[in-house]
């Protein structure tokens, strides 16, 4: 057993846990935050994606005990009260899901991705921070599977928010 304290969606939580518990099981089974989903439990599907200290990560591959002292944001923590996160609003507007099982992971992954600097595997010039085209988004979101195949609308939703952010930055 291990004693850990971490902040989840802004709330400090102290727990006594078996060392084998993953961050995903901590969230779902111990804290009742069932937004983060268990798909493959091997880091391959992305349904469990959360933000750890602001960076997207597979909660199934993180041991809860190794997250002691860290800040976790789940899909439940994306919205500002009743106001949806821009990505959530865009997913609704673009019809970016069917069954919805992958959606929490898609949302957290996209939220983290929009803050990640630098090139991707499909960027031509490595020295540039490229614009988030549909091709860039598809590559950067490749850690999130959607078995319904809603990818076209997921890319559209993420692209909409990425383009809004780029316009905001350009307008400053």
């Amino acid at each position: 057993m291990a004693e850990i304290t971490l902040r989840v969606n802004g709330v400090e939580r102290s727990l006594s846990l078996d060392t084998r518990v993953s961050l995903l099981d901590l969230l779902r089974e111990h804290l009742g935050l069932t937004g983060s989903k268990k798909g493959c439990d091997h880091g391959q599907c992305g349904a469990c994606t959360v933000l750890i200290d602001g960076r997207r990560a597979n909660a199934c591959l993180a041991l809860a005990v190794a997250c002691d002292g860290l800040e976790i944001t789940t899909v439940e923590g994306l919205a500002d009260g009743e106001e949806l996160h821009p990505l959530q609003a865009a997913f609704v507007e673009c019809d970016a899901f069917q069954c919805g099982y992958c959606t929490p992971g898609q949302l957290c992954s996209a939220a983290g991705m929009l803050r990640e600097p630098g090139p991707s595997a499909v960027t031509g010039d490595l020295t540039e921070d490229p614009a988030l085209t549909a091709e860039e988004i598809r590559e950067r979101m490749s850690g999130n599977l959607c078995r319904c195949g809603a990818y076209v609308n997921i890319v559209a939703a993420v692209h909409r928010v990425a383009a809004e952010r780029a316009r905001e930055v350009a307008g400053r």
Partner: peptide, 19 residues
């Protein structure tokens, strides 16, 4: 070391590379 940056970017997913 563009070869190294490209190699790292071609491995895993965004989530895996963050971890």
């Amino acid at each position: 070391y563009p070869m190294l940056a490209r190699a790292v970017l071609s491995g895993g997913s965004g989530q895996v590379r963050n971890m």
